[in-house]
Write a protein that binds this DNA or RNA. Structure first.
Length: 564
RNA sequence: GCACCCGUAGCUCAGUGGAUAGAGCGCUGCCCUCCGGAGGCAGAGGCCGCAGGUUCGAAUCCUGCCGGGUGCGCCA
């Protein structure tokens, strides 16, 4: 099970090895020049340099050997030593017929992976800043799970820092510590408290004291805190459900509180944690650092812990409870220095063993069409809930306009597909422009376009009859070949997405596949094809296309409606 | 000031050592007696920020510069 290019790589690698050259030179990939060939191998050039030989000489030996293989139909050498490879239609057809349920994707990864994404804060309504983390993190979780990992998504709530003290002290000042709060109240109380603390030092001091008291386990404060945590989580779950974002673990900064004191003790004993400017810190700078590397702070001057402390303790907990092979942080790119510090401290202390991967998978800012951070028209922060609502409205309007089938389920799926695909198709690290109008025009490279194509295939298969879509063998005509070849590539795209934590690679594949299918669909008739074997083969291509689209969209967290 | 990220078509973005740099939107022209036209086919549009360097070969690697974003000890 592999892609067609991987099979060819194996064959070509053996040929290089037989000449005493490294098998790695035999890498075959889909050709950059489809007008010249289906596949190419550029290894002769690099091999020539390594062996001190003429590249065309090596290429011609490899080409001769390839010509003797029955998998290959046409082998040519071009330019300085490119080897152009075409496969026989029989080989292509056999490859497609041999694909299992998952199109040859490797699924033998082992071990546990914890993915840290979402990261909503208690008492604050979720906003668009949480959107990227949630969407990307959830997609990566699905991708890693599909690869075979025991992939665990952890929401990592911001439920233990300074804002908690701000809210508690605000409630106390208002004399209503004893009454449960509602989400609406919280949405008013937190900004008010935060503003007051910024404006007045004494008020901020009060909040800091409340934070410490809470973290020290004060029973009254704890009870109040638990109440607004519950209220807040209920609100978050609504948002995450609407987005179709899943978490396996609902832990937060507070869940590791009991681990902090022993961890700090151990760090002190090892001489890693030292006092500095009234705080307790772990110096993490190295002598060869090019940049200034501030120390990681464990205890602030006022004795409270902060995110660096909880992030460290969270690693302690994950190592103990989950024994992960990797921990992946899907967090705003702006936090990379912080995580660099955390990772260094974790390595120095041995909390993170050298063979455990710690990856900061940062993402860029979501900007508005003006290129500046996304805001509401009034200039405020847009709530995630409102944004989703707007997306659904647009989807509904567009469905009506196009005269397509519509109901709540379809409108929701179209809206979520639009929002997720628009986000995921961008390179994770770069900033991206969020343009609701653009992504909901439903034309071109959008989520709804992909849904439309998928639904269209499904409808066609239904019309053809369910039992006819499994061909005994594939028949490759000129009209079928491009689609057939593309359908062999999924394992390569999947591997790249997995390796680089890059969902956009899968977006690319889904879009290419939908486009290639449209082209195929336009160039030949399927249901009315008189040749029974060809008709069956084409229906099988449709079926395979649909299954791959559903698979890839599923990995991105996008659901296909039954109809639209 | 120092560090990191980004700079590719009018706009939004792919492409990190290979041939003639791609896609979507927008623009021009075709295609509905045919399975769902949110579509297909064809075309115009590019000193790959600038200047050096490494290499048989550079959008891709190195150095310097210019432009934009971000970060740099008690917020997350």
């Amino acid at each position: 099970m592999a892609s067609l290019a991987q099979k060819l790589t194996r064959i070509t690698g053996e040929i290089f090895a037989a000449q005493g050259l490294k098998a790695e030179f035999g890498v075959v990939k889909v050709s950059d020049r489809p007008d010249l060939a289906q596949f190419q191998c550029n290894g002769a050039l690099a091999a020539a340099k390594a062996a001190g030989k003429n590249p065309r000489e090596i290429a011609s030996v490899v080409a001769e050997a390839l010509k003797r293989r029955r998998e290959c139909s046409k082998i040519e050498i071009a330019g300085p030593g490119f080897i152009n490879i075409n496969v026989t239609d029989e080989f292509l057809a056999a490859h497609l017929a041999g694909l299992g349920e998952n199109s040859g994707v490797e699924q033998n990864a082992k071990g546990t992976v914890v993915l840290d994404y979402g990261g909503p804060n208690i008492a604050k309504p979720m906003h668009v800043g949480h959107l990227r983390s949630s969407i990307i993190g959830d997609a990566l979780r699905r991708i890693m799970k599909f690869a075979g990992y025991n992939a665990l998504g952890d929401v990592h709530l911001g439920d233990w820092g300074t804002p908690m003290g701000q809210i508690i002290s605000e409630l106390e000042l208002r004399g209503r510590l004893d009454k449960p709060v509602t989400m609406d109240e919280l949405e008013e109380i937190y900004p008010a408290a935060s503003k007051a603390c910024k404006e007045e030092e004494a008020r901020a001091e009060r909040a800091r004291a409340a934070t410490v008291k809470l973290q020290d386990g004060d029973p009254t404060y704890t009870k109040v805190w638990k109440n607004f945590i519950d209220v807040s989580i209920a609100g978050m779950k609504k948002n995450f459900d609407a987005l179709g974002v899943h978490f396996d673990l609902w832990k937060g900064e507070s869940s590791v509180h009991s681990r902090i004191a022993p961890m700090v003790e151990s760090l002190k004993k090892k001489g890693l944690a030292v006092e500095s400017e009234g705080a307790l810190v772990v110096p993490v700078a190295k002598s060869d650092d090019k940049k200034e590397m501030p120390p990681l702070i464990l205890y602030k001057r006022d004795g409270a812990v902060l995110y660096s402390t909880t992030d460290m303790a969270t690693i302690v907990e994950r190592v103990e409870e989950n024994k992960p092979a990797k921990i992946i942080y899907v967090v705003d790119q702006r936090q990379n220095l912080h995580f660099e510090q955390v990772f260094r401290a974790a390595r120095l202390s041995g909390i993170a063993a050298d063979n455990m991967e710690l990856t900061f998978a940062g993402f860029g800012t979501m900007n508005g069409t003006d290129g500046k951070p996304f805001k509401t028209r009034a200039g405020g922060v847009m709530k995630l809930e409102d944004l989703i609502k707007m997306g659904v409205e647009k989807a509904r309007a567009r469905l009506a306009e196009a005269g397509l089938e519509q109901n709540d389920d379809i409108a929701n799926k179209v809206a979520i597909a639009a929002i997720k695909f628009a986000d995921l198709q961008n390179n994770r690290i770069a900033d991206y422009v969020f343009d609701l109008d653009r992504m909901t025009t439903f034309e071109g490279k959008t989520g709804p376009y992909l849904l439309y194509q998928a639904v269209r295939i499904k409808s066609l298969l239904k019309k053809a009859g369910a039992d006819e879509k499994t061909a005994a063998r594939f028949v490759i005509k000129d009209e079928d070949r491009k689609l057939a070849l593309l359908l062999t590539e999924l394992p390569d795209y999947f591997a790249a997405a997995l390796r680089d934590y890059a969902p956009h690679v899968l977006c690319d594949y889904a879009f290419k596949l939908a486009q290639e299918f449209s082209s195929f669909y336009g160039s030949c008739h399927i249901i009315s094809e008189p040749d029974a074997a060809l008709r069956a083969s084409r229906l099988a291509l449709c079926d395979l296309t649909y299954r791959q689209l559903a698979l890839v969209l599923g990995l991105l967290g996008i659901q296909i409606p039954e109809k639209m």
